[in-house]
Amino acid sequence: MTMSSLAGIGIGLAVIGAGLGIGKIGSSAVEGMARQPDAASQIQTAMIIAAALIEGATFFAIIMAFIAG
């Protein structure tokens, strides 16, 4: 197996993790908003921050995979 295909697998794994994480955040946020529509804007802010943090880690992983691959 070449280095580049390993990097490809790495990118795939990173995206799976990020997808699960952001999906969980999204589902929880929507649930929370449905339960407490008054707090919707605060929940949305927190959701975006959390999703951005996960996204950041994912991009970091993808770029490291690019560089290593």
Binding site: S4, G8, I67, G69
Partner: peptide, 8 residues
């Protein structure tokens, strides 16, 4: 579909 070193 084939990633390669040329990317960087």
């Amino acid at each position: 579909l084939t990633l390669n070193n040329g990317l960087l």
